[in-house]
Each structure stands twice: as C-alpha cells, then as structure tokens.
C-alpha cells in the first residue's frame, strides 16, 4: 500500500533531532509538525519572519498580525522570535536551518528539483522555495512517486523549469524513501506492502536497488 499523507509526515518526522530548527513547506511537510516525538524540542521557522511557530490559535486568540508563510493564522510558541523578511532569509540562505522539508513536481538523479512552474499554466511564483533549496544542507523532498496517470516524477533529468540545481539528496515518496548519490536514486526503504518491482517500474531515473530493502514500519 502506498503511504498516506499522514504516514509520509510520520516517516519524515523520524529524521527530526532534538534542538533542530526546521522549515516545513506547504502541504504534506506541514503535517510533520504533528509527529514531533514526545520529549523532543523542535523550533519551526516560517519564512515570513517567525522562528518558533506554534499551534493554530483558538477562535478567541486569532490575530491578523500573526500568520505563517501559508498566510494562515498561527500562534508563537514559548521562546519564539519574530523578525523581518531579510533576517528570515539570512537564516535560510546562511545555512542556519537544520532541516527543510518541501514538496516538488519532479526530482532527478542529479539532485535537481522542479517545484514552482509548469509552462503553459499560470505561473504564480516561487515564493521562498528557491532560497530554501539553495540555502539548506539538509533537505527532504516529499512527493508522490508518480502522477495520477502513472508517469514517474523521479527522472533522469527534470523536464520542468528548476527551483534549484544539484541540491536534493533525500526524497520520500508515497512508495519509497530514496537517497540521491553519484547520479542515481538509491532505494533505501519501501512502503509497507509495496514491492521493489513496483518502485522500479515507477522510477524513470537510474535506480540502484540494494540487496535488502527494508519495509517501513508504522
């Protein structure tokens, strides 16, 4: 069975470490915040200028001046700080964020990522995604392994305009967890009940399959 969105978030959350500053993109990455292990402290960065994003407010706590990068009303946790957009991206560009999790349309064997623009469709903009992928050492991309039509999104070479070049080393899809090294995807884990054959069939880019590929446990 392919992983659910919640399982994908759960799997990514296993990469968190105590004391990490983390930027979570919109969509599945946002759900990672729900699976921070008990007793672990993680500080979430929101690129509009908040380090230490808390839960959504209760109805009586809503404050129009308190939003996250998805423009949702939020709260600040104890120990948070708030700053300008230039300061926010100094943190991001300067490599101070320990882990960045974001979605993508395509990833390729060279670590390229395309996540912001589909030619012929309306282009809304890259927001902070280009800064995030250029600035972070430790990035996990979360995406479905293939499109609804079965087209692989793990390619030999991205076909869409890039968000960043050569910056992605780790990908979690609904079928597998893979790392990118030496011009290939390396299959590290598979979703429960998903066969290596299915992953091979749905991976267009070069794929290295080790002798033993453990099944993820939930």
């Amino acid at each position: 069975m392919a992983l659910t969105r919640e399982q994908m978030a759960q799997r990514v959350a296993r990469e968190l470490q105590d004391g990490y500053y983390v930027n979570l993109g919109i969509g599945i990455p946002t759900l990672v915040a729900n699976y921070v292990p008990e007793g672990m402290e993680v500080m979430l960065q929101s690129e509009n200028g908040l380090l230490g994003m808390g839960a959504f407010p209760r109805a009586d706590e809503i404050d129009a001046d308190m939003i996250n990068a998805g423009k949702q009303t939020v709260t600040a946790r104890t120990g948070a700080s708030i700053f300008s957009s230039a300061e926010s991206f100094a943190m991001i560009r300067g490599g101070h964020i320990d882990l960045t999790v974001l979605g993508a349309f395509e990833v390729d064997v060279h670590g390229n990522i395309a996540s912001w623009m589909v030619p012929g469709k309306l282009v809304k903009g890259m927001g902070g995604a280009m800064d995030l992928v250029a600035g972070a050492e430790n990035i996990i991309v979360t995406m479905t392994h293939a499109s609804k039509d079965g087209e692989s999104k793990l390619l030999g070479k991205c076909t869409l305009p890039l968000t960043g070049a050569g910056c992605i080393k780790r990908v979690l899809t609904d079928l597998a967890y893979l790392e990118i090294a030496e011009g290939a995807f390396v299959l590290k884990e598979r979703a429960p009940g998903v066969t290596v054959e299915e992953i091979v069939a749905k991976t267009a880019g070069k794929l290295v399959v080790p002798e033993h590929v453990p099944e993820m446990q939930f």
């Binding site: 300008s84 957009s85 230039a86 926010s88 991206f89 902070g128 280009m130 800064d131």
Partner: peptide, 22 residues
Amino acid sequence: QLLSGELEVELTPQGTLAEKMR
C-alpha cells in the same frame, strides 16, 4: 491582465526580493 499583456510581472525569489530592498 497578465495573460492579456497589460501587466508585466518579474518573479523574484522571496529572499532575493527582501535582500534587494535591504
């Protein structure tokens, strides 16, 4: 207005935009 050509847009990464102003 973008599609009709009345409006021009220059998309700029958010951190680059902030730093351009700074």
